[in-house]
Amino acid sequence: MALLNYTQQKKVGRVVFHIVVVFLCFLMTYPLLYMLFSSFKTAQDIFQHPNSLFPQEWCFDNYPNGWRGFGGVTFTTFFGNSLFVTILAVLGQVASSSLVAYGFARCNFKGRSIWLAIMIVSMMMPAQVLIIPQYIMFNSFGWINTFLPLIVPGYFGYPFFIFLIYQFMQGIPRDLDEAAFIDGCSKYGIYIRIILPLVKPALVTSLIFATYWKWDDFFGPMIYLSDVKKYTISIALKMFTDPTSVSDWGASYAMAMLSVLPVIILFFCFQKYLVEGISTTGMKG
């Protein structure tokens, strides 16, 4: 190393960094690559050569065959349903959660700590035991076989996001609020003008999470939707495989591949809000 000057050392360091990172990237993405290449394998190939990444011969039938769906309902429908549910639910979750988080972070009302505790505790209930009571409840609302149970509860705040945004709001100095308050800004105005723009990274994070979770949610749609035309992608994906009978793994991989694309694209597009241009606002001075 002594033979190299400083810039050369830096260059070598960077090359090594990239080599290591690319190798790690390969490890991280191997399952996705496997899924991608398996979606071009024939049924025999998938099971006879499970250890080889590449198909023995390329087979493109899995995509049209998978897209065909089940009994006349195609993946166009499933994608449409998933998009509809995800977009509506995510908007509601993020917007309402930011409101609630502001209430907890910046208002000193009576019962604040109790409600905060209730909010945290409601994150701890395993969804599995709530299935039946929730179904009974939504059935009494007449909401079964509609998208409402999947969308509406999100408009009343989602504890995970409330907590996340709340934590970020706590990181914002109060001097800013106070300055705004002296300028005649009400609590409501402070929320909209001061706090909301500053927690953008938390909102984006929530948005990415919320999208992925809604998109990936299997149990909710499975329980509440009965009409096949209303099924979301997550249910449809499971329907290719049946442990008690013949499964179509090729089509399953193909459709799984397509179904992760929107989430990846979303992440790729939104990540810039998380990193680029390090914050210059919100400091004390």
Binding site: S96, L99, V100, Y102, G103, F104, C107, N108, F109, K110, R112, W115, I118, M119, S122, M125, V129, L130, I132, P133, Q134, I136, M137, P153, Y155, F156, G157, I162, K187, Y188, Y191
Partner: peptide, 27 residues
């Protein structure tokens, strides 16, 4: 301060009472 607080967390309170209390207590 109390009004502002409940205006902001109101959604959560309503949602909790409507959607969570029943399943929670049934369980």
């Amino acid at each position: 301060e109390n009004t502002v607080g409940y205006v902001f967390i109101g959604l959560f309170v309503i949602g909790f009472l409507v959607f969570t209390v029943y399943p929670l207590f049934s369980s």
